[in-house]
Amino acid sequence: MFAARRIEYVKTLLKKVGIDPARLEMYNLSAAMGPRWAEMCDEFVDRIRNLGPSPIWLASRKQSEKGVTEQ
């Protein structure tokens, strides 16, 4: 309940800094929901795969490549 609210708030922050808020999600499930957990992981990973690498990952990769060539 608290977490859900917190997640919603952080989503707005992410948007401001240029990260798609779809990269963050809150799920509810009970201890008995093993199959749902598996399904949920697959759904979320698919979503991330569609979005591609995070802008921060790309930026740091670019920077380090640059670092390598400069050396």
């Binding site: 977490a3 917190r6 921060i56």
Partner: peptide, 23 residues
Amino acid sequence: GKLDHIHILSAFEKGVDGVFAAG
């Protein structure tokens, strides 16, 4: 309920592609 903004933001800052919380 223990989850903090800082945990999520830090994960993104370090280059994680996605984060979810489940409870």
